[in-house]
Simulated assay, not measured.
Amino acid sequence: MRAPGLLLLLPLIAAAPLPGPALAAPDQATPAAAGQPALPDLATAMAALSDGRAPEGAQMLLALARAGRPEAQFNLALLYAQGFGVPQNDRESLYWGWRARLGGIPAAPALIDRLAEAATPALRDELATRIAADLEPRIAAGEGRAMLERSLLLVDLLAKPDLQTGYAWQALSAALGTPGAAVLRDATLARIEPRNRLAAQDAALAMLRDLCAGGMQGQALCATLP
């Protein structure tokens, strides 16, 4: 049974400060990609939801969520959880809830917890794969924040956590100077059996070599490879 308490009238949720690229303020429109229509601002989407134009508001939130706005991702997750403006869908609610969690929305973990019964092991693995694909372009470009987000999928979302690979991404993120990554790296390393720790560290080097052969080629971290 679905836990009660999700709100139909959604607040304007702002992202908490997190390491990595600065998040756009809630009242600013996210720049559209070249050649694409301008995106709506979040306040306009929320106004549509509150004045009886729920599908229109959901459409605007979806555009913003796909553009990477964590506030829109969280509110879209709530819409899917309630079936307000969109057909009710726990898979999509969890997907956007996890995107919002990775984006730094403080309320996102509580929403994910409310949908825990829907998050079967198969669905957890499906979501981890889907979100990892979303992160891939940023990781290939050498963005430490995206590597840290990737690690959380492996450590916290997968039905069977992959601590060694999660550690490897955290090690690379920490090496790139992402704030908070070193703390998570050390916490994950402490959960890995001592006999497997060197293998996890070697995996990080192997991943870095692959990245340096691609989009990270020429970056300073690549010059440190043994």
Rank of each mutant, 00 (worst) to 15 (best):
A65F: 03
G57T: 03
L64K: 08
A34V: 15
A45S: 06
S50V: 04
A33L: 10
A63V: 04
M60Y: 04
D41F: 04
P37L: 04
D41A: 03
D51G: 06
P55M: 00
G68M: 08
D41Y: 08
P37H: 02
L61P: 14
A54G: 06
A63E: 15
A67I: 05
A38R: 14
P37Q: 10
A34R: 14
A38L: 09
A67V: 01
L39D: 06
P40Y: 08
R66M: 02
A65S: 09
G68S: 02
T44D: 11
A32L: 02
G35W: 02
L62H: 15
T44E: 07
Q59T: 14
P55W: 01
G35P: 03
A65P: 11
P37T: 07
A67R: 14
G57R: 05
Q59D: 13
M46S: 07
Q36M: 11
L42F: 15
A45P: 13
A67M: 07
A48L: 15
R53E: 12
G35Q: 05
D41P: 13
Q36A: 09
Q36S: 12
L61W: 10
L39G: 09
P40I: 00
A65I: 09
Q36D: 08
Q36R: 13
L64M: 15
Q36F: 09
A63G: 07
M46H: 12
G57C: 01
R66Y: 13
A65E: 13
A32V: 00
M60D: 09
Q59L: 09
A43T: 07
T44P: 03
A58P: 12
M46I: 07
R66V: 05
L42G: 00
L42C: 01
A45I: 01
R66N: 11
M60V: 01
G52L: 05
A54V: 12
M46L: 15
A65Q: 07
M46Y: 12
A58L: 04
A33W: 08
A48Q: 13
D41E: 10
L49A: 02
G68H: 03
G57K: 04
P37I: 01
D51L: 05
A54K: 14
A45T: 10
A33T: 03
T44Y: 00
G68Q: 06
A33N: 09
